[in-house]
Amino acid sequence: MLTILFDGIAYGMVLFMLACGLSVTLGLMNLVNLAHGAFAMAGGYCAVVLVNRLGVPFLAALPLAFLASALIGLAFERTLYRHVHRKSHLDQVLFTIGLVFMAVVAVDYVAGSSQVFVQLPDYLQGRFTLLGVGIGRYRLLIIVLCGVIAVALQLVLMRSRFGSRLRAAVDDARVAQGLGINVGGLFAATFAVGSGLAGLGGALGAEILGLDPSFPLKYMVYFLVVVTVGGTSSITGPFLASLILGISDVAGKYYLPDLGAFVIYTIMIAVLIWRPQGLFARAAAR
């Protein structure tokens, strides 16, 4: 029981890494980026190549995966995404879903369609028992690492000047820009960090979620559930939504295997009936 909870938390933490960038970019620019998962996949494959082919230590590959995805994200934002900022949501959806399909076939062509795994070092394999709870070493690493990053993100957002400028731009982009905040530059930076975190999530999550070329499509629904339930005005919302989603998905698949994915949809529907604006809605609609 507690082991399931533990695994669910680890799963939720990975989901948070994957989705938190999406919720911030959606909140900031109202940009629907369905291709967010493609940046996560890029990080995952980057880690696979670095660790399995080039023999880079696993822990060193994680920041590199972050960096690679962040740079790819920045390049795409500056060259392609900036042109759809002011387009309708339908245009954004069509554009980004196109990117997803391109990413899927590109990765399929280069790396093959079979599932790949990152070779974990020995010290991260296996589990130990603590107070009767079976704890996987790798999942413990995920929880600690993602927990630290989540706290750091929250501190940057709530305590730093960059964070207050970002929140100001999310509140009212037009006025923030009129008062000297370069919203476009802020967005590019946020997009890059969000893509980087997704890449880190992809690298960390390859073991748990599985990694193959259809990754961006398979997990798109999960990202969107996290953003819908968690809202886009903070990162505590997506964080809690990720944990709820992770725990309920793991528990659901264990206890109610016949229902499968319906468990998370049921929970999502229940939450949205209760709080249609998400768990942490803005105080008032703009």
Binding site: R161, D172, A176, G180, I181, S233, R282
Partner: peptide
């Protein structure tokens, strides 16, 4: 800016 404190409203810009 609603989600900023009074002081942050000033220091942000």
């Amino acid at each position: 800016f609603r989600s900023l404190t009074v002081e942050e409203n000033l220091t942000a810009v």
